[in-house]
Design a protein around this nucleic acid. Sequence first.
DNA 1: AAAAAAC
Length: 530
Amino acid sequence: MTKFSDLDLDPKVLKAIAEAGYESPTPIQAGAIPHALQGKDVLGIAQTGTGKTASFTLPMITRLAKGRARARMPRSLVLCPTRELAAQVAENFDTYTKHMKLTKALLIGGVSFKEQEQLIDRGVDVLIATPGRLLDHFERGKLLLTGVQIMVVDEADRMLDMGFIPDIERIFSLTPFTRQTLFFSATMAPEIERITNTFLSNPERIEVARQATTGENIQQQVVMYKASRKDREGSEKRRILRQIIDMEGDSLTNAIVFCNRKTDVDVTAKSLKKYGYDAAPIHGDLDQSQRTRTLDGFRDGSLKILVASDVAARGLDVPSVSHVFNFDVPSHSEDYVHRIGRTGRAGRNGKAVMICVPRDEKNLADIEKLVEKEIPRLELPGVKSPAPAAAAPAAAPEDEAPKPARSRSRTRSRKPKEETTEAAAPEAQAEAPAEVKDAKAEEKPKAAERKPREPRKSESKPKAKAEEPARDNQRDNARDSQRDQGNKPSRGNNNARGGKRGGGNDNKVVGMGDHMPSFIALSFDQRRAS
DNA sequence: AAAAAAC
């Protein structure tokens, strides 16, 4: 099957598809649509840019074409992690239902309840929502989910990152178990696997190759930079950012600048504006109307540079961005792939440039491991890159004083002081060689951070925190498992029972200990193989 | 250490 017309979609849907200019389904669409049309559960492993959204909207519309909604009882439900994503899905429905009379409501936070309520009251075929607002409506008694025939969970792994999984489970439990479930995730973290085992029944598993971890059509570069003084890091990075932007000249048609923190998004956007760049911020603390306005402007080309937090890293459909700038190195390496995936879409060429300060070098190494290549260093005129940090800072012994005098004296002799204000604490700042500084900087956090992870005495991996189901653990767990690719059993399910409380039985094998039955790793192996 | 999502 290579054409949409070969799929058993409603003729009115096919018409809308043709009018939107599409002829052939993407792999995820070709894989998912036939099963979804038959009413089967679908587990789609795919990321954005693969045509995922239409792979559930098209069959849903077709199946909902018959029948009508009753008041307060939506017939279908789509859950998304962010408001923008939900809005995007809603647009997608509009596009493909334009020849039909299906009704929909978009339930997201940041906007008034009233309109949403009125729509629900009248009865909707499709409800598109973020979990918080959906549950809010439910608790107010305005909504019944017992009529849901089709439920979609989009970007489940992101929901996991955001701590939404309990909400999702609750929402699942409010819908009839006879519903059809279409479930999408970019990765299959153990927690996601657990959810799908619980709530999907005999799903068709459709997996599309992740877009080449980072497409070859994206040119990547990183600027290694060490601030002249710590308190100048921000302003100096912004100067470098301008320098990078200027270098791109006319090849830069539009760009996203990613920062790790919301405050840096604001500061950076303001700074760019001050220097005459056409830039605007977007992050979760801005009000919804501004978020929408900014994003619309960016889409229609009236805004050139979008300065964003990770709210924009995944899922947002911004057709073609010529450049992505990582003002900060993302601390979760998966995010790097998502961020730069905003450029070089649909086979176009894109460029992604990142600024890396010494503190972020470990994260950079993680990223390079993930994308399986070294990101070329970009030397900027007038910007000297710092000496490469010690190869493995993590290996630095924690209790030995990081060596010393030798490096310092070297420093001193090499670099005459420029910063008069530094006089008070000469060694601490200034141009200390990266090795020494790093070792120092890492000292404290490392000690605190590493202890719990370090295997004690025996090789078995004690799960010190096994018993607490806290959200943070879930997250750590998800991250670890992504990194380790399933080398250890998922804590939540398997180990907790082993019950290692406090110390005492450190030598005991906990839960499944080191041995992991091969079937548990299977899905990951499959993924790796592809 | 932070981001996102409900009021």
